[in-house]
Write a protein that binds this DNA or RNA. Structure first.
Lengths: 199, 199
DNA sequence: GTCTATAATTAGATAGAC
DNA sequence: GTCTATCTAATTATAGAC
């Protein structure tokens, strides 16, 4: 293997380990030593590839959001002004299924949103704004002129309703006895959220 | 002031500071030195009153949940089998208003739910289970025989939809330009969530 | 009851050998 | 490109003076 290949392989393994650690433990509780260990290398090598913990965190964010492009398909606009209800429901079901299968995305954003600092602003500017604008556009089509004013509430309401169950899977198991990550419960949750937003 | 009074005052200030720090920064990123500093005492005194960081965390949890008793009023059952729709909506609005004014509750639970450890289990057994059972009972009245199976989805769906906007207030300001903690936006969110759950 | 001093551990970042 | 060794700073917890 060439040095360039070796380089890319090591970086990829470090970023994978960083994504898992940041999503699971959060930024503060994650240690670069532990992340390096998960990737099978030493901490010294980690700082060779990523000069600071912040730089590693940004690489992890890029990796997480790269898995999202293109964004989950918005419901097709079938000629008329109004979006077809069942198509909107299916889009929401798809969103819930995605949240269930990628809990690291929500966990990562939630962790960054904790403090009003440079990392949050970078995440908003680099990855979140474009996705929010897409949802706001959808809200405008669903709610007409009121779209702009309901967009924030719809965005956080939908995201919270869709994602919290999977972000708190451990709590849910302890509290209710059910495992929310099973296909059956993912589908139940998708149906509930879809029916709540589009009755 | 007697020593007993002094003791209680110092403990109360330490617990108040701990609640703020654990909710704002999370357990790991909170330091006992900083918490002691916020309370105006030294770290040595903190460990005199609370032998470990874990013990302080449990005292903070007790304080947070003490503010919740009695639980937010459930809608009155007006004679019939079915709960009155408008009363159910008002109960949900009250829940959203409470979430908006006490973001530390959601932040604290969310932080504990991150890891499947002893702290999470203690929190579930000591404070969360009774509250969940109340919601599950409400679900049974709203949804009849299906209540038991939808209760977990309803609980996390409602909690997420109601609370996330305020838990991520800093992100919301950066992302949308609005401040979700204003009375106006709290009411908008309350109305949206109430109308979603009880159309 | 409160403080200062410190032990023991761990963190992120740096330097240099290979 | 990778590793070992080390620096500096911060952490929780402990011990003892007052």
């Amino acid at each position: 293997m060439s040095r360039a290949e070796q380089r890319e392989q090591t970086r990829a393994r470090l970023v994978d380990a960083a994504v898992a650690s940041f999503a699971e433990l959060g930024f503060d509780a994650s240690s670069t030593r532990d992340i390096a260990g998960r990737a099978g290398v030493t901490q010294g090598l980690l700082t060779y590839h990523f000069a600071s913990k912040d730089e590693l965190w940004r690489a992890a964010a890029d990796r997480i959001f790269a898995a999202l492009d293109p964004p989950p398909a918005a419901p097709e606009d079938r000629g008329g002004d109004r979006v077809d209800d069942e198509a909107a429901r299916e889009a929401i079901r798809g969103y819930v299924r995605f949240a269930a299968r990628h809990p690291e995305l929500f966990a990562f954003v939630l962790d960054a949103s904790r403090r009003d600092d440079d990392r949050l602003r970078w995440l908003v500017d680099t990855h979140l704004r474009a996705r929010y604008d897409a949802v706001a556009g959808l809200a405008a089509r669903l709610y007409g002129d009121d779209g702009a004013s309901v967009a924030p509430h719809l965005y956080y309401g939908l995201t919270g309703a869709a994602s919290l169950l999977f972000a708190q899977a451990a709590e849910c198991r302890a509290l209710t006895g059910i495992d929310p990550t099973t296909d059956d419960h993912v589908e139940r949750h998708a149906e509930l959220v879809a029916r709540l937003l589009v009755p």
